[in-house]
Nucleic acid binder design. Structure first.
Lengths: 336, 336
DNA sequence: TCATTCTGCTGACACGATTCAGCATGTGGT
DNA sequence: ACCACATGCTGAATCGTGTCAGCAGAATGA
């Protein structure tokens, strides 16, 4: 534990026989601009290498007011099942841009959220990515107005800010197209949801309708239910008990689809022979089901990465970027 | 964006008619020690409130060499399905101790790991939690020797360091006890694994054996396989095809158990009427299965939280702390 | 020859806090 | 009247860096 204090810029300068200023210019790539002689540059670089000099980031931050740190504030990122790769994506992108991510989870508590934002500001983060677990419209928290911010998986219609969200409408089209391509024309949708500000559901519905519309078709029916395994099971069971049948079932997420799988199995219906299932999320869960669930993937990793890149790219204009959702093909669609 | 610069200690001092020194003492709780008059203390505090003064953490760090920041380095925390709550736990505990977590995922790449450690040191983190996705013995990375570190979900037998891991042996006992309590005495284990340094498997096995031993019993048989859904399905199918039968099945994790569920269902065996299943992880997946899977819970949240607390508690001695694993009771055990 | 420009570098201040050493002033004892 | 001590505060150094303004000497132009 008793490592001697590491080399400072002064050490480098003295050892190379120049002033701190000169050494600083060289290390900040301003040697040409400042007309430092090549021989001097070389000498200083050699000393830097020999002393294994690392600039003290704290001191630098104090001067420059930049901390090479970005905040990631969300209701639930880490604790969540699948969305945590947003965090990985953000972290990787930050690293590429020589930054580091500090995380804050509010758990949905507005007061805690306020404190987290306050803390980020106190720590002088270079910007904040404000993320939500589920895609939705939000009102930007007060504290963020004064900071550079990017919205992740959410949008504020009233504020001009960069925002990164999945392209759920295209995702919806892709889901429907997958069934159409298999010759399935009677499509039911499981899980239209009444959650107030959620955007994923409505957009996916719109996409599905639009795609079916290109063939002059419409959704055969909708079963409302929460996006959970147990609700999916219950809703599907009720639907089947009521005589429900369809060539294809589009589930609003993978968990719900898992519930549907259970209900269908219990009713003796085989996937995909008797009914085809398509879902959204593209989570690991989809790949665990038998048959593997065909699911339209949420690009969590890319969402997180792009949010950070937009945050740190000062040239970037405001506005929403929609990230495409790819179909992960499994075996739950007939003839697929 | 054009917020005026926020108040500094100097502003507070001037405005209160005292020196920076005095203001600093007051704000750092050294007023008594320094014999500052109560009236002065009150005056300064009032000004602090009025100006909404927040100490500049960067400047403070430069002086004190403490950043109120802890690093969390792991092979895969965020990207992982269930372990990400370790991160949440760590983050929450850090907050309670006025610290913040910066995350680094190496993806298992030793070179990247080295860079991450280097970066943490450069950023002067107050300590590093070194975590692994799966419980295992490791060799402490070189770079961490010079820093304060705590191991999370892993242990280095050769190095004296605080370490926090789940108590897998007791977990194993609990799993076996659950079956014994239901009167089940012929117990098979799915998923003994040959992964080199992994500790979870062997310890759980030892616990199971010990618990069965208290009744003069032993494991009826073991089916080796990877801890994945597909392997669980395949291994269980083979076992059943070979005439395998048992009163109780202990699966080494929930994913494997899901595969077993699928194979048992395919063979027409009902859970728990025909066979009882117990597993490890206590993940959300367990609660999604039908019937809900009884599973011995990995306390990820607490693991993460305790690791950070031990990291920041300088009084803490070295040594491994085992965190208990609770049984989350579902409906997969007969009579449960 | 002298003014001007270019070359190569440095001194000194600033960023915003912590903290050691010390300086007036009052108070009590002899 | 003088010393000792407690009280209540402050000056100045320090952490390690970034950067403006400027300085000496050489080269150039008229």
């Amino acid at each position: 534990m008793t490592r001697r204090r590491s080399a400072t810029l002064q050490d480098v300068a003295s050892s190379a026989g120049v002033s701190r200023t000169t050494a600083s210019y060289i290390l900040n790539g301003r040697a040409d601009e400042m007309r430092i002689a090549p021989s001097t540059v070389e000498r200083v670089r050699a000393v830097v290498a020999k002393l294994d000099y690392r600039p003290n980031r704290t001191a630098r931050s104090l001067r420059t007011r930049r901390t090479a740190t970005v905040g990631l504030i969300s209701d639930q990122i880490a604790g969540q099942q699948y969305g945590s790769s947003m965090l990985t994506g953000a972290s990787v992108a930050a690293r590429e841009l020589q930054h580091v991510v500090v995380m804050g989870e509010s758990g949905g508590d507005p007061e805690l959220e306020r404190l987290l934002i306050e803390e980020m500001r106190e720590r002088d983060v270079d910007g904040v990515v404000y993320a939500t677990r589920t895609a939705q419209t939000i009102r930007l928290p007060e504290g963020l107005r004064a900071m550079r911010a990017v919205l992740l998986n959410c949008e504020d219609p009233d504020v001009r800010l960069p925002s990164v969200v999945p392209d759920d409408e295209s995702g919806g089209r892709a889901a429907a197209a997958t069934l159409l391509a298999a010759g399935i024309e009677d499509v039911w949708v499981m899980g239209e949801d009444p959650v107030p500000h959620a955007t994923a559901g409505p957009r996916r519905m719109a996409g599905i309708r639009a795609e079916l519309g290109t063939r002059g078709l419409d959704i055969a029916g909708v079963v409302p239910c929460d996006w959970s395994v147990t609700e999916g099971f219950a809703a599907t069971s009720r639907w089947l008990a009521g005589g429900g049948r369809a060539g294809g079932l589009i589930c609003m997420n993978d968990r719900l689809a898992m519930g549907a799988y259970q209900a269908l199995a219990e009713a003796g219906l085989r996937i995909p022979e008797d009914i085809s299932v398509v879902s959204f999320d593209g989570s690991a869960l989809a790949s665990w089901l038998r048959p593997v669930l065909t699911s339209v993937e949420l690009p969590f990793h890319d969402l997180g990465a792009l949010a950070v890149r937009r945050l740190l790219d000062l040239e970037d204009a405001d506005g929403t970027v929609l990230l495409p959702m790819a179909v992960r093909v499994g075996g739950s669609v007939r003839g697929g």
